[in-house]
Write a protein that binds this DNA or RNA. Structure first.
Lengths: 343, 343
DNA sequence: CTGAAAGCGCTAACAT
DNA sequence: ATGTTAGCGCTTTCAG
């Protein structure tokens, strides 16, 4: 492969001059420029961005870290939305995206220290992740698309108001007359799941409803887990009239589970989701859910990171809570046999 | 940031020795090793993969090129499947994934020449893409997940049997009595779309059916395009009884379009998709479609690329056609008012 | 077992 | 307007 040196020799100019015409910088006489350009094309010379990065310290690449398996990541349409938001912004800034999945064993900050990326966007980080301090205290340019700890941290993040979102659905269900409400939650090591459960408890308490611990189950945000949990809960003597789910896949699974037991949704049980992934509008019955704007989340995260990389990052760190929106479709309905329904 | 040199000074050994302990190579006396390790941890030294790559010529990164906007890529669940397949294999080999979207202006081979990746996987490359020769003649380690030209090229690719898949649905529709069949196709610059249309023509001819050019429309693989095209076609005096679509999003859009005209699917018109994205099973009516195994495609592409990068690539190039599978669900049904139905 | 020197391909001062 | 000289942080001969 031809190097800058080969070009300089062939074109009879100094290395620096070649560098100049390649980078379009400084003034180079038109004659030399043309000659160099000619040689470059003759030799098929390609500047090595690698070498350039080594000296400039810039890679023009943003790392996106999702510490879950590829199977998990691409099965959850939520990530799709966030990636789309990130992708659009990076595209616009002509930055590349280094996608780093799985391998929880590794310290993500490495990606930055190894000089493979100029900054990091981190998605769905588990609470028990051994996150290195430097990611939290701003030593590494990083933005999270989730709160990382329950207590606040001096780091940049954008997250949805998960607790508030759950409160929205619970209120909605209540207005339909439901007073016996269960919750199919996500894994305990995700802040999202904790916030949702907190929102759930809060909403119940606020309206004087009883929380039945038997009806609050921990799953893993998947179709299968939703199906199993729903069947479990509906197997008790005392059964809820509504099931709030921590994500849409869980909800779809729960619907199937409940149906397999011979119950109708929403006639017998109301079931709601969370995320509003593209699928939610198409299921039968179409899912009543809480929309969290993953796309916006991705965009904001990417934009914030770019500011940071340009040295104009927000101080103190930017911490944004995105509002959620209740999307009422067909999987929620009036509580069955309910006199006190006040709709 | 601490460099290898800092460590060597501090530990009072040569740079090379530090390099040795870092890479676990060669024999280093246990005493020195411990001392060096200690200094490394004291200084918080991180080897720069960038510098290492410059000298070794290996980046441990695979480039995935999708020359479409982020919006398009993440709206099409098909890419999700392929990325999942690729992601799983790379994960397993501890390789990173550099996702390169949009920017059709750039010669993708650059990614390799700039030494940012060790090899390339290319998805959904348009026919009119100014692909540089080196991608086709094996000068750059590359695998395509689509045929790149209609005529064969000496390059590695895995693709689905799109023509065969369309023949499968057409046969299915015929067995339901349909003889008036339309086709909502994808853009003309995608080989996929061309193969599908070819399969369509072939299937009709093989069974002595007439092809009505008015019913063959070119769209762009999207909900909106499917909706519009379906409305168009159903607006003619002579209308087809079945509409074959080039992808699932088109089909879902077509269903909605047809419904908006007051027709039932499949009672009045049968509509079929292509891909079998996760959504297809959930729509109302659930989509009859052709499953192409994007996941497998991704896996094979990644595995082939890794072989190539290891110098044990297939020769001649590996060119695989993956079989498709007809998935019959609820959007296809008996042709309306049809005496000659032989089911 | 360990070290010195050369260089990967490029840019950044600082000349000229 | 152009060239010279140092490196960027690491690995690799080839010697000790």
């Amino acid at each position: 492969v031809a190097t800058i040196k080969d070009v300089s020799v062939q074109a009879q100019v100094s290395i620096k001059t070649v560098s100049r015409v390649v980078n379009g910088s400084a003034e180079v006489s038109e004659a030399t420029r043309q000659r160099v350009l000619q040689v470059i094309s003759d030799l098929g010379y390609r500047p090595s961005l690698l070498a350039k990065s080594l000296v400039t310290g810039k890679t023009n690449t943003v790392g996106v870290v999702i510490p879950h398996t590829a199977a998990y990541v691409f099965a959850h349409l939520y990530f799709n939305q966030v990636l789309r938001g990130i992708g659009e912004v990076l595209e616009q800034h002509r930055l590349d995206l280094l996608l780093h999945l799985g391998r929880k064993d590794m310290n993500y900050a490495e990606l930055y220290h190894q000089q493979r990326v100029d900054g990091l966007i981190l998605l769905a980080i588990p609470l028990d992740d051994p996150l290195h301090h430097e990611l939290l205290d701003g030593r590494v340019p990083a933005v999270f698309t989730c709160r990382v700890r329950e207590n606040d941290n001096p780091t940049n993040w954008v997250d949805s108001d998960a607790a508030g979102g759950i409160e929205q659905v619970v209120d909605h269900l209540q207005s339909l007359g439901h007073r016996e409400i269960g919750f199919l939650s996500g894994p305990d090591n995700l802040v999202l799941a904790r916030l949702q459960r907190e929102g759930f408890r809060h909403a119940l308490r606020a309206s004087g409803l009883q929380l039945n611990p038997e009806w609050v189950r921990i799953g893993e945000y998947s179709f299968e887990s939703g199906r199993r949990l729903a069947i479990d809960v509906m197997g008790f003597d005392r059964r809820p009239t509504a099931l709030v789910c921590g994500d849409d896949m869980t909800a779809v699974g729960a619907i199937r589970g409940v149906q397999s037991l011979g119950n109708q949704v929403p006639t017998d049980v109301s079931i709601t989701g969370f995320d509003d992934v593209v699928l939610a509008g198409y299921t039968v019955p179409a899912l009543t859910t809480v929309r969290q704007d993953g796309y916006q989340k991705g965009r904001i995260a990417a934009e914030t990171l770019i500011e940071i990389m340009n040295g104009s990052g927000p101080d103190p760190p930017r911490q944004i809570v995105l509002a959620t929106e209740l999307i009422v479709r067909d999987s929620s309905g009036l509580v069955p046999n309910c006199q006190e329904n006040r709709l």
